[in-house]
């Protein structure tokens, strides 16, 4: 009962503020902005409690995002990479001559890719291993050497870039103790255990920094929406 009373009072206050802003500001004349604003508010209503407005907005969002992704991938992958080269631009016909290699370069990857669909059958599901093997194998091959360079060589080099300063010693100390924490071949006891404990401190401090940044990011999202509601929709701020 008490909660219901609070809810009514809260809603009344919100409606009064809203009407005040409508009168004082310059509300958008664009219907799309209104739809976006109402959907935004519907989503935020979840902060009070799950409700029908939230559910509607959420399902709409899921549906729209899936539809959008499907159409974008269809247009950019299937149409631009398969359909166009095969039927429109016909990359395999050069000066009236049919060339088998450019033709196969489109057809074979397409067929291998289609094997992905085999997952929907019970008996042929194993065929999906073929495209997955291609993806995993080629990406591993492509990325081993550059990731070595980007993640091991460059990072080791920059760790080594030391000057006789406190911060570079802290960095080296942090890198080594963290690596020790992720050393699994020995029980973490004695000297190794103490080093690993220092490592976990470094890891936690790094996580703390990351967490702080995350808080900033989440607030930024709220700020973005607030800016939209107050500037684009209601026009109460400059």
């Amino acid at each position: 009962m008490k909660e219901r009373k609070g809810l009514i009072i809260g809603s009344v206050i919100l409606i009064i503020i809203f009407i005040g802003m409508l009168i004082k500001g310059e509300p958008s004349k664009n219907i799309m902005v209104w739809i976006a604003a109402i959907l935004t508010l519907s989503i935020y209503s979840f902060l009070y409690r799950d409700n029908i407005f939230y559910k509607f907005a959420e399902h709409l969002f899921v549906g729209v995002s899936v539809g959008y992704s499907v159409s974008v991938v269809y247009q950019n992958a299937f149409i631009r990479r398969v359909f166009d080269p095969l039927f429109i631009t016909r990359t395999y016909i050069v000066e009236g001559q049919f060339h088998i290699l450019p033709f196969l370069a489109v057809v074979i990857p397409t067929l291998i890719g289609l094997l992905m669909v085999s997952v929907f059958t019970k008996r042929q599901a194993w065929l999906i291993r073929i495209p997955i093997a291609f993806v995993v194998g080629s990406y591993a091959g492509m990325s081993i050497s550059p990731s070595f360079q980007a993640n091991i060589f460059e990072q080791t080099r920059s760790t080594l870039h030391i000057a006789l300063s406190i911060s570079s010693f802290i960095m080296i100390f942090g890198v080594i103790t963290t690596l020790v924490y992720f050393f699994f071949s020995k029980e973490h006891k004695g000297f190794l255990g103490r080093t690993a404990n220092v490592g976990i401190w470094f890891i936690m401090i790094a996580f703390g920094a990351s967490f702080g940044y995350t808080v900033m990011a989440r607030i930024s999202l709220l700020i973005g929406r607030m800016n939209f509601l107050l500037y684009d929709w209601l026009g109460v701020i400059k």
């Binding site: 980007a150 990072q155 790094a206 990351s210 702080g212 940044y213 900033m216 990011a217």
Partner: peptide, 26 residues
Amino acid sequence: VTAVSAAQYYPYLNSGQFIGMLGGLK
């Protein structure tokens, strides 16, 4: 980058693989 991922990218900034970085709204 978003602030969520900014912390993760400092090593790349430090090593010069990024010439610079804008982190989040700030």
